[in-house]
């Protein structure tokens, strides 16, 4: 008689550590942590094969709170570390946690190259449009006019859009989520994990201390249905409390516009169907900004290609097959002579 080992149902708790979480109470990071732990469970991830890598900033404390392998590195450079990890052991499932300052300011260069190379990573960029850990300076995504300790008269920097940047860098998976929609975010992260190659997920995250309610206009519970559009591949891009608003392509302006079904002779047929493999559409969607447009969430673009780590190892495997790895012979290549 054999005893069946008791099969424990996996739960997000399996991915919790015994570390005291040190984010400010009410910080959006808590919700994201939940969403990630859910995604890990739902994807059947093994803690020992999972690595979280981060840079510096509030978001970058993340690895300490997930019971996998983790590396809290230096400011902006997480993509370099993650690339090295993935190159040495492509079987590892590597997540990268960064913020708008870490990933787009000091680490913008590295982000660009990790995306263009298509290193097989899940990159989560927590965008709170502020520097939290250094106490509230403006960031590369802060809106113009924002008053902070370093911009007492208001910021005059033009902000950048993380998703447009990612697409421009050549990312083959671009998605967006919001800290207030844990379930939605969790399923987006699941998609990111399934995607082989660099998956870029921008997450709107509320910093309750230094930039509270900056996303309120589209994250407020009451308004969310009218201000958020959750994309589904192959389905019409429709939103709104009444599910009547949608995106239409205006060929005269070469732009997307919000229309309402039933008004001005608009029918459902006028509404665009989301095609996540269409890069032009992806660019247009990423450019849409509230309040004129809904906040675009979900998988905006997914068009897989061979990952960098895969290509590197393909070459190595080919070379191993073609050549004999004889170290002593290597030292004797070229001209040699014998003294007797």
């Amino acid at each position: 008689m054999t005893t069946q080992p008791e099969i424990k149902k996996p739960s997000p708790k399996d991915f919790e550590t015994d570390q005291e979480v040190r984010w400010c109470p009410g910080c959006g990071d808590y919700a994201i942590l939940k969403a990630v732990q859910m995604a890990l469970v739902n994807s059947g991830s093994k803690p020992e094969n999972t690595v979280f890598v981060s840079g510096i900033g509030c978001s970058s404390r993340f690895p300490y709170y997930v019971s996998t392998y983790g590396f809290h590195t230096i400011h902006g450079r997480a993509p370099g570390f993650a690339t090295g990890i993935k190159l040495v052991n492509p079987d590892l499932d590597v997540w990268l946690v960064t913020g708008d300052g870490d990933g787009l300011s000091i680490g913008g260069n590295h982000m660009l190259h990790a995306l263009r190379r298509n290193v097989d990573l899940q990159i989560m960029l927590f965008n709170n449009e502020i520097y939290g850990l250094t106490k509230g300076q403006y960031s590369p995504t802060s809106r113009p006019g924002l008053k902070t300790p370093s911009t007492p008269l208001g910021s005059v920097d033009a902000p950048l859009s993380p998703c447009v940047f990612a697409l421009g860098a050549g990312a083959r998976f671009v998605a967006r989520g919001i800290d207030t929609s844990i379930k939605e975010l969790s399923s987006t992260l699941l998609r990111a994990r399934e995607h082989k190659g660099a998956s870029f997920v921008e997450i709107f995250q509320n910093c309750i201390v230094y930039n509270d309610k900056v996303f309120e206009e589209f994250t407020g519970k009451k308004r969310a249905k009218d201000t958020q559009l959750h994309l589904r591949h192959g389905e019409k891009m429709i939103f709104g409390k009444e599910v009547t608003k949608g995106l239409r392509f205006n060929p005269q302006k070469i732009a997307l516009e919000v229309v309402t079904v039933g008004e001005n002779a608009i029918t459902e047929d006028d509404i665009l169907v989301h095609d996540e493999q269409n890069r032009h559409l992806a660019f247009m969607l990423c450019e849409l900004e509230p309040p004129e447009f809904p906040a675009i969430c979900g998988v905006i673009y997914c068009h897989p290609a061979e990952s960098y780590d895969q290509s590197v190892h393909d070459q190595i495997d080919q070379a191993k097959q073609a050549g004999k790895a004889d170290f002593n012979a290597l030292l004797r290549t070229g001209r040699t002579w014998v003294v007797t």
Partner: peptide
């Protein structure tokens, strides 16, 4: 910088 960071990542991963 990315060069050395990748090397440190490699060592973390057991290379």
């Amino acid at each position: 910088i990315a060069a050395i960071c990748s090397a440190i990542g490699a060592s973390f991963a057991g290379g």
